[in-house]
């Protein structure tokens, strides 16, 4: 008996040890990023590299920020992200309501198409859409970047639909008997109960849109329209290539909003992953 308990305790200890080691491995890249951003120009290029910075050189943040018009890039990113998030939440909720609550002849077939589009590689879509938006003279505008979030996100529609299916129908039936139309039922009855799922879509759309790189790269031409992603890419290529400290400083500034949102809303992330990840389980 005693040996059993002792073995169990040893087992638990080993588990904590491995987990702690895992946590260190996962956090080490971030620690390295912070450390590098604080190094001096010379310290960042020291060979062999050192783990700790050679002092606290906060100046690399300001120097990097001023090397390119990052204020403009930040504004552009904010505009694109706000539009993308607002549109994807609004339109996905409306479509999800249709798929969750309204019966129609083609609903099953359309839902199958919706599921099918979730596995289409983006590589198939970028060329025809580039031709289309080039034709519509929308290259070098934000719309080809924003619209896929408004209309194109099958994943969000699916996630919201799955959540709506868990909401009992009694309340919408009651509202219907009281004479409420579908829009009223959706916004007055369903949406108030959907807050967790809507929060999940909001944070996913925020992170996806903020980190988006390929679409801005394809569509934005003028430097004055660049997003943070493109600004960082511009900084990393060309003349600033060896200023690792400044590169990491800008990278940290770009990560900051995502990390803050993640810390505030981590439950929403976990819920979203498990809700769609486990499907029917």
């Amino acid at each position: 008996m005693v040996t059993g308990i002792r073995a169990r305790m040893a087992g638990r200890g080993a588990a904590y040890l491995v987990l702690a080691l895992g946590a260190v491995v996962f956090l080490l890249p971030f620690a390295w990023m912070v450390s590098t951003s604080l190094k001096s120009n010379a310290g960042a290029l020291q060979y062999p590299p050192r783990f700790l910075p050679d002092g606290y050189h906060w100046g690399s943040f300001a120097a990097a920020w001023q090397a390119l018009p990052f204020g403009t890039f930040l504004m552009n990113s904010v505009v694109i992200t706000v539009l993308s998030v607002a549109g994807s939440v609004a339109f996905s909720t409306v479509s999800a309501y249709a798929f969750a609550r309204l019966r129609a002849r083609w609903r099953t077939a359309m839902f199958a198409l919706l599921l099918g589009t979730m596995m289409i590689p983006g590589e198939i879509i970028i060329v025809p859409d580039f031709i289309l938006f080039n034709h519509l003279r929308l290259v070098n505008t934000i719309w080809p970047i924003v619209w896929p979030y408004w209309f194109g996100n099958a994943f969000f529609v699916f996630l919201l639909r799955q959540f709506m299916l868990t909401i009992p129908r009694e309340l919408d039936e009651a509202a219907h008997i009281d004479g409420a139309g579908h829009l009223r039922i959706l916004f007055r009855v369903i949406v108030p109960q959907m807050k967790p799922a809507i929060a999940t879509v909001t944070v996913f759309a925020f992170v996806g849109s903020w980190n988006n790189f390929i679409y801005p790269l394809i569509y934005l031409r003028d430097q004055s329209k660049y997003t943070m992603s493109l600004g960082l890419q511009l900084f990393a290529s060309a003349q600033y290539i060896t200023r690792y400290n400044q590169m990491m400083a800008i990278g940290l500034l770009m990560l900051a909003p995502v990390v803050v949102v993640f810390l505030i809303a981590q439950r929403s992330f976990v819920r979203g992953i498990t809700l769609t990840g486990l499907g029917g389980r």
Binding site: F91, S92, V94, S95, Y97, A98, F99, L102, R103, A104, R107, M110, L113, L114, T117, I120, I125, D129, L132, W147, P148, W150, F151, G152, N153, A154, V157, H182, L186
Partner: peptide
């Protein structure tokens, strides 16, 4: 149903 699923349908036609 067809009215409210329009945003998705547009997305399917243009982005899927």
């Amino acid at each position: 149903f067809y009215l409210l699923s329009t945003p998705w349908a547009i997305g399917f036609l243009v982005f899927g």
